[in-house]
Simulated assay, not measured.
Amino acid sequence: MRRFIFFSALFSVMTLCACQPDTQPKPKQAAENKTPVVVVVNYPLQFIVESLVGPEIQVLNPVPPDANPETWLPADAMIQTIQQADLIVTNGANFADWVKKLSLPRSKVLRTSLSLKDALISVPDFEVHSHGTGAAHSHAGTVAFFWLDPALMERQAEVIAQRLIQLVPQEKESITANLEKLKDSLKPLSQELDQLQAEYPGLHWFSERPVYQYLARRCGWTMHHLHWKQGTVPNESDWDKLKTMQREQKIPFLLWEHQPEEKRVEELAQHGVNSVVLDPLTMKPAQGDYVTEMQRQLVQLRQFLKQHQSETAESKE
C-alpha cells in the first residue's frame, strides 16, 4: 500500500512538472536565431549591402527619406538601435555628422574610406567660413563621394563583403557570388564614363561644393567649386567670385546636385554658364536603384554635352 501511494505521488509530481511552461530564458538559442543588423550611413552603402546579402541580414539606413544624410542626427531611441547593431558601415571622410558625434563601438564600425587611402582626393579650400567678425578662411578636407567612380565603389563593396563574411561565415559562398554580380552591374557605368572621357576630355566644370572630383578624375575633367551653400540664394559676393573665375578661365558648365530654380539657371546663362543636374544619390531615388538611375544620369549628361558642342570645344582650348 505504501509503495502504491509513493508511486502515485511521484507520478503526480512528474505530471505537474511536465505541464509547467518553460519560462527560463535560453540566451544561446536566442542569439543563434537573431537576425544580424547592419547599419549604413547613406544610400550607396545601403545599395552595396543589400546587393550582397539576403534576408539573413537586416539592413538599416536610419536616415529618413526627406532628411540629408550628411547632416541628419538620430533621436535617442535610434541611437540605441545603432549602437546595438552588429555592424555599422560608414563612409568616412566626415560624410555623416552623426558618426562623428555618437559614441560607437569601434569593433562594430567599418570605415570604407580606409580601403581607399591611395585614391582619396583632398581639396585645400574644401570649406570656407568665418568665425564671428573674423576674416573668412578655409579648411582642407577629403571629398567623400567615392561611389561616383564605379571602380572605387567596387573597392568599397569588396571590403564590405569581407566584413559581412566575418559576420555570417555560413553565407560566404552567397556573398562572394553576389559581389561578382554587383561588379558586373557596375560595368555599364564604367563604360559610360569611358565614353565621356573619350568624347569630351579636358572639360572644366563649376560645382556648388566639392562633390564630383572622383567622377571628374575618371573623365579627365577639372572641377572648380564655388562654395555656394546648398538651399540658399547666391549673394553678391558669390556672383562676383563666379564672374572673376569666368573672366580668368571661361568655365562653360555647372553641375548641380539638385534641380536649381529656373531664375538661377537663367542668371548663370547670362554669364555664359550652362546648368545640368547630376544627383550624387546620397538618398534613394524615387525610381529604380543606384545603377539604373546613375546610368540614366550619365546618358543625360552625354546628351547635354552633345547639345553644347561649341562650349565643350572652348573649354578644352
Score class of each variant (00 low, 15 high):
127 E>T: 07
46 Q>E: 15
50 E>W: 05
125 D>K: 02
136 A>F: 14
49 V>N: 13
122 S>M: 04
102 L>H: 12
77 A>I: 07
112 T>W: 01
106 R>E: 13
77 A>N: 15
95 F>T: 08
49 V>T: 11
83 Q>E: 06
100 K>W: 08
57 I>F: 00
65 P>K: 03
115 S>Q: 02
52 L>V: 12
128 V>Y: 01
42 N>I: 03
110 L>W: 01
82 I>K: 02
105 P>R: 02
99 V>D: 05
55 P>R: 11
54 G>E: 12
63 V>H: 03
79 I>A: 12
47 F>N: 15
71 T>R: 05
58 Q>G: 09
130 S>E: 04
67 A>M: 09
89 V>W: 02
119 A>D: 01
122 S>V: 11
76 D>C: 10
68 N>R: 03
60 L>Y: 03
48 I>D: 12
134 G>K: 12
62 P>H: 02
42 N>V: 06
112 T>P: 10
69 P>Y: 00
48 I>R: 12
107 S>A: 14
104 L>M: 02
48 I>F: 11
119 A>T: 00
49 V>K: 04
120 L>H: 01
100 K>Q: 08
59 V>E: 07
136 A>S: 15
126 F>Q: 05
122 S>K: 13
107 S>Q: 14
74 P>A: 01
53 V>D: 13
51 S>C: 08
93 A>D: 13
56 E>W: 10
104 L>I: 00
84 Q>A: 14
126 F>D: 00
63 V>Y: 13
69 P>W: 04
53 V>F: 14
73 L>C: 07
117 K>Y: 03
113 S>C: 14
85 A>M: 11
132 G>W: 01
106 R>L: 09
91 N>C: 12
114 L>M: 13
61 N>M: 11
86 D>R: 03
124 P>Q: 05
129 H>S: 02
71 T>I: 13
52 L>M: 02
70 E>A: 09
118 D>M: 02
